[in-house]
Design a protein around this nucleic acid. Structure first.
Lengths: 148, 148
DNA sequence: ATATTCCTGACTAATTTAATCAGGAATAAC
DNA sequence: GTTATTCCTGATTAAATTAGTCAGGAATAT
């Protein structure tokens, strides 16, 4: 039940962009450097973010990435979904019909457990926006002092 | 964010035992056969269950496994915990101090997201017992008719 | 005795994930 | 129009994890 590095890095990068949403574009290398993400790996990740319509990119000198929408309109759920596919603790949750996993055995009495888990996870992630993360970060800094 | 086969099979096997909790011990092979789980793999899994104190085993002819407690006192969370370790979407959630992941970058403003997700997941899984699964299964059978 | 069933570590195979490589295309600055 | 910068994108390799098997042993009921 672990998040992949893709998802982990992805959210960090998006939060980085959110924190600078009023400052125009940010080049990939800047993010990679600041957050210690291998930059060719981050390239893959931001490519996915662009395909998902969550960021826009500009090429050439002074180019880079920025959020495609205000940070309060981008939910963590969308990001993770774009990077890792739909959340589903168990594969057989995908099919609308029970075909795949419930035909042969009676084991699918357990299925509702994973459905409930999935629904709860989706609910949590769809209710946190990038802005929430930025604000939370600012609050922490205010309370505890900046760290670096 | 996928459950491993260990966890998936494990819950199925435990639900199987729960459904027969008044019938004495059930041999591993019976479960493996019924639920289509490779039996040497199931052996590993039930071994873990025993080490975690969730089942008791009897050797020899007419031996087998049974739940070590009434099914309503065994939560899904315990089972998954024993089979996959503590739930933690991101590794740095383990350490009580921030040492591991938050020193170098400001990326840990995202940490609370994973904390919240973890807490919610734990909450869901700790509030479903094996008996809930059995009852749910019986209800479904009553409503929809038995499948096999 | 013997058949049955669990015990347990070591091992192998398959899959997934992380990361790198490579070459290209667009664009701003000069 | 040349150059440096930055994103684009598929292919490939390397590392790690997971799934599953092998092998031999120990306990126990009949």
């Amino acid at each position: 039940m672990k998040l992949s590095a893709r998802g982990h890095y992805g959210l960090i990068a998006m939060a980085y962009l959110a924190q600078r949403e009023d400052e125009g574009t940010v080049p990939l290398k800047t993010i990679a450097m600041a957050e210690q993400i291998p930059d060719q790996f981050l390239e893959q990740i931001l490519f996915s973010m662009r395909k998902a319509g969550l960021v826009t990119a500009t090429r050439g000198p002074r180019g880079g990435y920025k959020l495609s929408r205000p940070s309060d309109q981008i939910k963590v759920g969308e990001i993770i979904n774009a990077l890792e596919g739909a959340i589903a603790p168990v594969d057989c949750l995908h099919s609308d019909t029970d075909q795949d996993c419930c035909v042969k055995t009676e084991s699918c009495t357990t299925k509702f457990v994973w459905e409930k888990l999935r629904d709860t996870m989706v609910d949590v992630l769809d209710n946190i926006s990038l802005r929430d993360i930025v604000e939370r970060g600012n609050t922490l800094i205010g309370e505890l002092g900046v760290k670096s």
